[in-house]
Simulated assay, not measured.
Amino acid sequence: MISRRLAGLLALAAALTGVQVASAQPARAATRILYYDASQAQEFVSVVNQGAAIWNASVTNVRLQPVASGQTPNIRVYADNGWPRTYSTSLGNGRWYMGREAVVDGYSPPRIAAHEFGHILGLPDNRTGLCSDLMSGSSAPVSCTNADPSSREAATVQANFAGSVTVAPRTYVWAGRQG
Rank of each mutant, 00 (worst) to 15 (best):
S143A: 14
Q71M: 08
A27L: 12
L34T: 05
S138G: 12
R63W: 01
N93D: 04
I112Y: 07
A38W: 05
A159R: 14
Q40S: 08
A53L: 03
G18T: 10
G179R: 06
E43G: 10
V103L: 04
T128G: 04
Y107S: 08
T171R: 01
M1N: 11
P149H: 03
V167H: 15
R152T: 14
Y172P: 00
S90H: 02
M98W: 02
R95V: 14
V67E: 04
S136Q: 12
G163V: 14
M98Q: 12
R170H: 10
I120Q: 06
T31L: 02
L12Q: 11
G122T: 00
G82Y: 13
A113H: 06
A22L: 10
E153R: 00
F117I: 06
Q158S: 15
R28T: 14
A24N: 13
G118L: 05
S150I: 01
G176K: 08
P124F: 00
G118W: 08
A15K: 12
D105A: 13
G122Q: 01
Y107A: 07
V45N: 12
P109S: 14
H115I: 03
Y78E: 07
N74A: 15
Y87M: 00
D133E: 11
R63D: 06
F44Y: 15
G94C: 03
S138C: 13
I112E: 02
I120W: 03
P110I: 02
Q42V: 14
I120P: 05
S46D: 15
C144G: 09
A30V: 10
S88D: 01
Y97N: 06
T60F: 05
S69N: 15
W55N: 01
A27K: 13
L16S: 11
E116Q: 15
F161V: 13
S90G: 07
G99P: 06
P110H: 06
S150W: 00
L123H: 00
A14Q: 01
A53D: 12
V142Q: 15
I54E: 05
A13S: 12
A11H: 01
R170I: 09
L16F: 12
W55S: 01
P169H: 02
V142A: 12
T171C: 02
G94R: 03
A41K: 06
F44E: 15
R152F: 08
V103M: 10
A30W: 06
M98V: 08
A15R: 13
S58C: 11
L91Y: 03
V142W: 07
P110V: 07
A175R: 10
R95K: 10
L6T: 07
V47N: 09
G129L: 05
D37F: 05
P26H: 09
N56L: 08
D148V: 02
L134T: 03
V62N: 02
G163C: 15
W174G: 05
